[in-house]
Computed example of a mutant assay.
Amino acid sequence: MLLTDRPPRPQEPGPALTRTPTADVDAWFPDVSATPDPAAPLRLICLPYAGGTPSIFRDWSAALGSAVAVVPVLLPGRGLRIREQPYTSMRPLAEQLAAAIAARGLAERYALFGHSMGALVAYEVACELRRRGFAEPAHLFVSGSKAPHLYGDRADHLLADPQLRDLVRDLGGLGPDEQSGEAYLERRLPVLRADLTVCDRYRWTPRPPLRCPMTALCATHDPIATAAQVEAWREHTTGSLLRRDFPGNHFYLTGPARSLLLTQLRRDLDALVHAHTGEPAGPSGRNPS
Rank of each mutant, 00 (worst) to 15 (best):
P76Y: 05
L159T: 08
A102V: 11
R234A: 11
F29K: 00
R83Q: 14
E12R: 13
E136M: 04
G133I: 06
F113N: 00
A63L: 10
G248L: 01
L64Q: 03
S33P: 12
A69D: 15
L44H: 01
V25A: 14
A23I: 13
N287I: 04
D268A: 09
L140Y: 02
G144T: 03
L242Q: 14
F141I: 05
S180Q: 14
M117Y: 03
R91C: 13
S116Q: 02
R83G: 08
A216D: 04
I56R: 05
V25C: 14
P256S: 15
Y87N: 01
R91Y: 10
A194D: 10
A147P: 08
Q85W: 09
F29Q: 00
L269V: 14
T88C: 13
D200E: 11
G248Y: 00
G14D: 10
G152N: 07
T277H: 12
D161P: 06
R187D: 15
R19N: 10
L189V: 12
T215M: 05
R19C: 10
G51P: 00
A100I: 03
G105A: 07
L185Q: 01
L112Y: 06
E128T: 14
T22I: 10
P209S: 09
R132I: 07
F141Q: 01
A16L: 07
G133R: 05
A227H: 09
T254V: 13
T18Q: 15
S240Y: 09
G239Q: 04
N249L: 14
M214H: 04
H157K: 05
L64V: 07
P8S: 11
A225H: 00
F57N: 00
P38L: 07
L80Y: 11
M1N: 11
T53G: 12
N287W: 09
D5W: 11
L3T: 09
W28K: 00
L269A: 13
G52C: 06
A99H: 10
Q163H: 15
L17A: 15
